[in-house]
Structure formats: C-alpha cells, structure tokens
Design a protein around this nucleic acid. Structure first.
Length: 492
RNA sequence: GGCGCUAUGGUGCAACGGUUAGCACGCGGCCCUUUCAAGGCCGAAAUACGGGUUCGAUUCCCGUUAGCGCUACCA
C-alpha cells in the first residue's frame, strides 16, 4: 500500500452523475495500466461536489463496473464531499495571497444571471466585441466596495484573479507543450457562493494533497488545464505531468451518450462480454503498442503500455470490433479460464442450480470446449447451446423447416436410435460408422441424417459437429432425445 | 462568436522526410466442410483541400474546410 517516493501515483476520479460509461472505463483502464506498468499506485476518488447533479446511489454502480473490468485501486475511494474544509482553506489561502478575489456577481446558483454577459454589458475599455475572456468587475473592488456588499448580505464567491497578460504553459505527455494566452482565460470561480468548491479547485487541491504525479484523463479537460496550472502556482505547488487522452465518440461522431445505445460498462457485462476482451478492445481505442499486435492479453497490455503510444485523435466506438475481441477471448485462452464465466452465465439463466454435484467437472470442460468455437457472447451458452446443459429445450423453427423436411426421416431416425443404443462402444468413430452405414442402407446421403439428428438432439441447426456432440451428451441422452423427437419429426 | 485540439480505407491503429502506404475489424470471393462458426487464401477500400519548405512529403510550416473540446457558481 505504501509506495516508494518516486513511484508514480495516478488516480481515476469519476463523478457520480451517471453510470460508468465506456469513456470513463477507458480512462480508468489507462490509469490502471500505467500504474501497473510503472509499479505505481492507483487511487479512486469520487468527485461529488455538485450537490444538485450528484447521485450517491450511483457510486456503487461505478465501483461495480470497475470491479467487473478487473480494475483494482490501491487507495480510496475518497469522496470530495467529505473533504470540503480542505477546499475552503485552499480558497482562503489563494484569496489571502491575492491570487483570487471575492465576487458578488449574481450567480446562477441562486438567480440565474450570466456573469459573462454582465461583464460585457458594461462595455468598458476592452473594446466593443472583445475577443478576450470575461473579466469580472469585482476583481478591482476596494475594501469599501466589498464591505458594502458584505453588509448587504450578498453571497460571496471566490474567483481566481487571472493575469491579464503573459501566458501559461504546461507539458502534456500526449499533446506536447501547451501554451495559452492568459488573456483568453476568464476569472473563473474557485469557491461557489454556497461554499462548495468548483471542479477546478477541488481537483487541484486533491491532486496536490494525494501527491498525484500523473494526471491521465479525457481530452475534454485539456482546455481547462491552464486554469489548474494557475491554481497550482497560486498554491505554490508544482503541477504534475498531464496526459490527456482523446475522447471516444459514437458512430455519428458525437460524444457517446444514451442515444448511441449501450454505453454503460454494466450493459456490456449483461450482454455477455468478457472483461478481458473489453479491456483489450478499450486499450486499443486511443493507444497502440506501436506494432500490429491486436490480441493482447492483460499482462501484455500492462507490459507494453506507455503514454507515448497514446494517440491524439478521437476514436469511434466500434461494436463489431468489440465482438470480434470477445470471440477471441471466448476461443483462444485455455478453457479453464472460461469455465467460471460459463458457470455464472448458466446460473444466471437458471439452467444450472450452482451445485458442484450437478455436473462433472471434466465433462463440463469438454462441453464448453466443444461449444465455444461458435460463440460470440457468453449468453450463447444459455441460448443456442442450452441443450448441452439441460433436457429442457425446444426445436428451433428454422432448424425444423430446414432439416426435417424429408418424410422418411422419422423412420430412419427411429432405426438410428436403435442402432446407436446397441453400440458396444460410445465414441466418435463408432457413432460416425453407425450413422453412415444406416445412411448407405437407406440410400440417402449421410448429411441428411446428420443434420436431422443434430436438430433432434440439440434443437438447433447451428451447433457443433454431430459426433463430438454425441460423445459429450452420452449415449442415453442421445438415444432418448432422438426418440423424443420422433413425433415432432412427422410434423416439421 | 472566441480560444484550442485533431485530420491515413467505413472503423481502430502502423508508417515519426525516401515503403508497391502496412496490420486488424467489417465487407466481397474462393478453399475447407456435417449445419454454423473458426481457420487459410484472394480482393475492393485511405494520406480532407490548397499553398509552401525540401532532391524528395502521409510525415515539417501556413491557410481553408470539417469534426471535436473548452468558453458554468457542471465535472
């Protein structure tokens, strides 16, 4: 838990105004990969200073999303709502040093006024259509001006006294050195008139207090970073290294939102995506290892992650590619890694009662291994592959129409059941030989029987190869299922 | 409106002054075949536009355009 002095300390700082969305998840992932790669520390901080939009109950969902993703934090979660004194003290300190001033403008928090318009409406020496950022008129108030307003009981906010001249610069690990004109930065609020800090203040105070060394966050914060650098200076603290990562957009190139369908991490968990597949996909959205590698298991992601590989262009979330990654993780890793996920899925679908005794471990592994080459989502195990785990399944309409057309099938499958039942050995080749010789005797192609039988024993047209399926299902089940299908065969 | 960032096939990334502009997803075709996948092979598909700089620009500079971000007493 305690990190050595020069180990990086990073943080993921979501705001509980919504669920954990893919953009936030990607930011969290980059922070986590960076921390693990560098042997550093990841902290979790909940930025809940907006009392109106903040929904405490959402915090659990965010934590659950991170856990599902396999992102573990080393410290926290810390809640900004429990550290308000710290921010007030900082605001007073900045006020005392002259880097901030008391503002008595009408704030939207209690009146709906617009500060910027008010400042412009004065039409002062700045020129008619000034391109410069708004300068608050309160910044030049005399002691008497302030005293008068205090006496009137006008709520006081604290604004930063942004320099009118000069520039502010900082270094960004992905965007390089940034420099902005101070004249383009408005006199932004540090402490609201209700005593709560704004994001700009609390984020800086906390990052200083928590000794954060690298701030890895969405590029939507790039434009506000100069303000934060100004606060660091006012607080006589050295700014950390910034690393802004490009945003993730929807297919229409606008910011990802509910309109784009599933955007919460939880919905992907529910749909049957594997966390590692999701991580692999997300990691490659805005980051590249530098070569053509695509399938990168998590330990490889950690080994290869570097801020220098982060791109500067916004990326579009491509669900098709996510699905491809999921198939990779469903099919490539050792089957043992998949078993817990399949068990959870079967349990969720009420196909498996969860008792260890209800299915033999070796058999279960074989079944999963046979099914997985055809899966795209974890839920496939409880949908089309259902018949592997329960006798309670039905015959898919399309399958019946496609493979049960021939009216001779009923008689042939009746014979097949008997032949199979009489088999002394139950294995792939024996089943294969039995079925093929029956086909020959009946004068039909083996495919006719194979396809019809597949539908009879698993209810689906799309399923694993027949003889492997027979072996996994076992003789008793295969024979009884064929016989059970006989009546239905007459009425495809 | 102002300020800023970005710009390689439909999508995600490579190429960080010199390549027939590479890989992956997706798409089309072929092979394999016991349905369907997987897999293998092949194919279509890109440097936004205009100026520079340079022997040489995807790459460096400027402009245009477009997209995105910020411009809140949201984060």
């Amino acid at each position: 838990m305690t990190s050595s002095p020069n180990r990086p300390r990073v943080r993921f700082a979501p705001s509980p105004t919504g669920y954990l969305h893919v953009g936030g998840a990607r930011t969290a992932l980059f922070n986590w990969l960076f921390a693990r790669h560098e042997g550093g520390t990841l902290l979790l901080r909940i930025e809940d200073t907006d009392v109106e939009r903040n929904k405490p109950e959402l915090v659990d969902g965010i934590l659950a999303g991170l856990r599902w993703l396999g992102i573990e934090w080393d410290e926290g979660p810390f809640f900004q709502s429990q550290r308000l004194d710290l921010y007030r003290q900082a605001a007073e300190s900045v006020l005392a040093s002259g880097h901030a001033f008391a503002c008595y403008c009408k704030g939207s928090s209690y009146a709906g006024g617009d500060h910027a318009e008010e400042a412009e409406g004065d039409g002062d020496d700045e020129g008619p259509k000034s391109a410069k950022a708004a300068v608050c008129p309160c910044r030049d108030f005399s002691d008497a001006d302030r005293a008068a307003r205090e006496k009137e009981g006008i709520p006081r906010a604290v604004r930063f006294r942004t320099p009118r001249t000069g520039t502010t610069s900082f270094e960004d690990a992905v965007f390089g050195v940034r420099e902005v004109q101070n004249a383009d930065i408005e006199d932004f609020v540090l402490l609201r008139s209700n005593g709560l800090p704004t994001y700009q203040l609390s984020v800086v105070v906390d990052d200083i207090d928590m000794r954060i060394t690298h701030i890895i966050r969405g590029a939507d914060h790039l434009s506000n970073t100069p303000k934060q650098v100004l606060i660091y200076r006012a607080l006589t603290a050295a700014p950390p290294i910034f690393a802004h990562v490009p945003l993730i957009l929807g297919a229409d190139r606008t910011r990802l939102s509910k309109r784009h369908g599933a955007t919460s991490v939880g919905s992907y968990a529910d749909e049957g995506f594997l966390p590692e597949a999701f991580r692999n996909f997300l990691a490659l959205l805005g980051w590249s290892p530098g070569d053509d590698s695509e399938y990168l298991r998590t330990h490889e992601l950690i080994e290869r992650f570097s801020l220098s590989g982060v791109s500067r262009t916004n990326a579009i979330f491509d669900r098709a590619k996510l699905e491809w990654f999921n198939t990779q993780y469903l099919q490539k890793p050792p089957v043992e890694e998949l078993l817990p996920y399949v068990e959870a899925e079967l349990k969720r679908a009420a196909i498996w009662d969860g008792s260890p005794a209800s299915h033999d471990a070796a058999w279960f592994s074989d079944a999963v291994d046979l099914i997985r080459p055809r899966t795209r989502l974890l839920t496939d195990f409880s949908t089309w592959a259902r018949a592997f785990f329960t006798d309670d399944f039905d015959y898919e309409k399309e399958a019946r129409e496609k493979f049960w057309k021939d009216e001779r099938l009923q008689g042939m499958l009746e014979k097949l059941a008997s032949v199979l039942e009489a088999l002394p050995e139950w294995n792939h080749d024996a089943c294969d030989a039995a079925l093929r010789s029956l086909a020959t005797a009946e004068g039909v192609k083996a495919g006719l029987l194979i396809n019809a039988t597949r539908v009879a024993i698993v209810g689906r047209a799309v399923a694993p190869p027949l003889f492997e399926t027979m072996v996994v299902l076992g003789k008793d089940r295969v024979v009884s299922r064929i016989r059970r299908a006989l009546p239905a065969l007459a009425h495809p």
